[in-house]
Simulated assay, not measured.
Amino acid sequence: MEKTDFTTSIEVDNSPKEVYEAINNVCDWWSEQIEGPTDQLNKEWFYHYKDIHLCKMKVIALEPGKRVVWEVMENSFNFIKDPAEWVGNRLIFEIQKQGNKTKLTFTQEGLTSFYECYDICQEAWTNYIQNSLYKLITIGKGEPNPKEEEDGYNKELADKWKLG
């Protein structure tokens, strides 16, 4: 089996600028449980979903209307043998004007079928990009994970990764 990165895409009637702004509004399409700036170059931010997934990202590229890239600095899944599978992966959002449409291509560079989390992760990203982010862009309201109670996750690990 060939090792490939996970990719999914959508097309919308909105402008590249609107798509770019929606991507950077991570709390409105991925999760309301985000701490730190998601729209500032070289800044880190923290995401968690209950005790299932904790992740520290760094914004490594911001090209308005064209591209957003995050690098996974730390990661923990509670449902696989190697909880740090994503560490070093890059999450890439590429925006292209195509006629009167705008195409957004999302790639998780490093998320391959060799990962134990692949099936769950590809299903989740497909939903976040093709459903939640698509709705945020087209109708102004995404479907992010809701904010949760503070006792719903691994606080010790989260505190270790928190932003200074």
Rank of each mutant, 00 (worst) to 15 (best):
F46G: 03
Y49R: 10
H53Y: 13
H53T: 06
H53V: 07
L54G: 13
C55Y: 01
C55N: 07
K56S: 00
K58Y: 08
K58F: 06
I60E: 08
I60K: 03
A61E: 12
A61N: 10
L62S: 08
L62H: 09
K66S: 15
R67A: 01
R67H: 11
R67Q: 11
V69Y: 00
V69D: 00
W70P: 02
E71V: 01
E71G: 00
V72P: 00
M73F: 03
N75Y: 05
N75K: 09
S76F: 10
S76K: 13
S76L: 08
S76Y: 15
S76G: 06
F77E: 07
F77S: 03
N78W: 05
N78G: 04
N78I: 04
F79V: 01
P83S: 07
P83Q: 05
P83C: 05
E85M: 06
E85Q: 12
W86E: 09
G88E: 09
G88N: 10
G88P: 14
N89F: 03
R90L: 02
L91Y: 04
L91D: 03
I95D: 14
I95F: 10
Q96K: 07
Q96H: 09
Q98S: 14
Q98I: 14
Q98H: 15
Q98Y: 09
G99K: 09
N100D: 13
K101G: 08
T102W: 15
T102A: 14
L104K: 08
F106M: 06
T107Q: 02
Q108I: 00
Q108V: 01
E109C: 00
E109R: 00
E109F: 01
G110S: 02
G110R: 00
L111I: 03
T112N: 01
S113G: 11
S113Y: 11
S113V: 15
F114H: 14
F114N: 13
Y115D: 14
E116V: 05
E116R: 05
C117T: 04
C117R: 01
Y118C: 07
Y118D: 11
I120H: 05
I120V: 06
C121D: 12
C121Y: 07
Q122C: 14
E123A: 14
W125N: 03
W125C: 03
T126Y: 10
T126K: 08
N127G: 05
N127L: 03
N127Y: 13
Y128P: 03
Y128V: 05
Q130I: 02
Q130W: 08
N131F: 11
S132M: 09
S132E: 13
S132C: 11
S132N: 13
L133Q: 08
L133W: 15
L133G: 03
L133E: 12
Y134S: 06
L136F: 11
L136P: 01
T138C: 13
T138M: 15
G140D: 09
K141D: 13
K141N: 12
K141L: 11
K141Q: 15
